[in-house]
Simulated scan of single mutants.
Amino acid sequence: MHNSGPWPGHSRTAREIGQQPATWTRVADAVRRARPEIAELIGDEPRRIVLTGAGTSAFIGEVVARDLARHLGRPVEAIATTEIVADPTAVVVDDRPILLVSFARSGNSPESSAAADLLQRLAPGLRHLVITCDPGGQLARRWSGAENAVVVALPDEVNDRGFAMTSSFTGMTLAALLAFGMDIDVEALAEAGSAVLDGAFEHASAIAGAKPSRLVFLGSGPLRGLAREAALKCLELTRGEVVGLAESALGFRHGPKSVLDERTIAVVFRSPDPHTRRYDEDIARELVQSLGEERVVVVGGDGARSWPVPAPPGLPVAGYALLAVLAAQTTALACSLALGVTPDNPFPGGEVNRVVQGVVIHEFVPSEVS
């Protein structure tokens, strides 16, 4: 298992990327202890499940929603806290009871508590499942001990101290899948994660060495949320000097393809789903024609410019995202280091903050809604 970062040096970010496979079994233990409470909270009633968070935490919902819906046989939607706070009545559109699943690294972002409190007012019978990396954060303290809530606090080591969310992303994603009873061999997953990290230095350094000004990440189905997380990591860790763009394989042709230029590298997350994979392979071939083979990387592919991702049999696509995101995180870190940016603190002037600042939560008055 990796217990340190895949690069020379001692940045928190490198260590937190490298430690992830070793943390997953401890995440599973934390969820296992909470499973009886979670099962009681979910119940047999056909609840509508809403997955929420902001930024990376919102992308967790996008990654897991479809697999959870298939597993549970009930509606599961990913709606960011930033959308709930700005337009709360659009979330409560009928009288179905809601289970709100909140993801939060710290739980101290203003939108985290505001979204949960707003829906508590607007949705009768609302229940809360909070999955967080910080039991002392505002969100965890707000709902700990409440009759209609369960708080799952993950091990302290996944509470990233670096600027960008890495361990916290994979920890909360895995926790969500396990919390709803999905069958994942966590030991095999961790072994596969270590195998991905073993080759990370060479693959990521090759991408960073090409000095891209733009990185395009494409993923389909649950991997579209992964593509959005990958683009965000690129922006965060390079201080915006490398622009990240995310789309689906099919959606990319509908305008976003305009971003391609001679300094673009495209990264395609090849889905393990046989049907979806065909579309990923189609866009990869098309991008090779546009950019050249040296500027197209297929994560999970098996060609010359591919980044292999060995996956245990039977792993859901959302579980596969835990492995594929390691390629995205290490690529962002390699680009950051190549540019001379400090990955643990890419914005020393405070232009962007680890916990968002400057948000004013305005009072919601239902009568104002027309």
Rank of each mutant, 00 (worst) to 15 (best):
P310V: 07
P310H: 09
P310G: 03
P310W: 05
A311S: 15
A311F: 02
A311C: 10
A311I: 12
A311K: 06
P312A: 14
P312S: 11
P312F: 12
P312E: 11
P313K: 07
P313N: 02
G314E: 04
G314K: 14
G314V: 05
G314R: 14
L315I: 15
L315C: 13
L315H: 05
P316I: 12
P316Y: 09
P316W: 09
P316N: 05
P316F: 09
V317G: 00
V317K: 00
V317Q: 10
V317P: 04
A318P: 09
A318G: 10
A318R: 09
A318N: 08
A318K: 09
G319E: 15
G319S: 13
Y320I: 13
Y320E: 15
Y320Q: 15
Y320R: 15
A321M: 11
A321K: 11
A321V: 11
L322P: 03
L322I: 08
L323T: 05
L323E: 08
L323W: 10
A324Q: 14
A324P: 07
A324L: 08
A324S: 14
A324V: 08
V325E: 10
V325R: 06
V325I: 15
L326W: 11
L326A: 14
A327M: 12
A327S: 15
A327E: 15
A327C: 15
A328R: 01
A328Q: 05
Q329G: 01
Q329L: 06
Q329S: 02
T330V: 10
T330G: 09
T330Y: 08
T331H: 08
A332W: 04
A332Y: 03
A332C: 02
A332L: 01
A332I: 03
A332V: 02
L333P: 01
L333W: 00
L333D: 00
A334L: 03
A334C: 06
A334S: 09
C335T: 05
C335R: 05
C335D: 01
S336M: 00
S336H: 00
S336V: 00
S336G: 03
S336E: 00
S336Q: 01
L337T: 04
L337C: 02
L337W: 02
L337H: 02
A338I: 04
A338T: 05
L339V: 00
L339S: 01
V341L: 07
V341C: 04
V341I: 15
V341G: 03
V341A: 06
V341W: 07
V341S: 04
T342L: 12
P343L: 01
D344P: 06
D344T: 06
D344S: 05
D344E: 05
D344R: 12
D344M: 05
D344G: 06
N345E: 14
N345H: 11
N345Y: 03
N345I: 04
P346H: 02
P346N: 04
P346Y: 04
P346V: 03
F347V: 05
F347G: 08
F347C: 06
F347Q: 10
P348E: 13
P348N: 07
P348G: 09
P348C: 07
G349I: 11
G349S: 07
G349A: 09
G349Q: 11
G349N: 13
G349E: 12
G349R: 10
G350M: 12
G350Y: 14
G350E: 13
G350L: 12
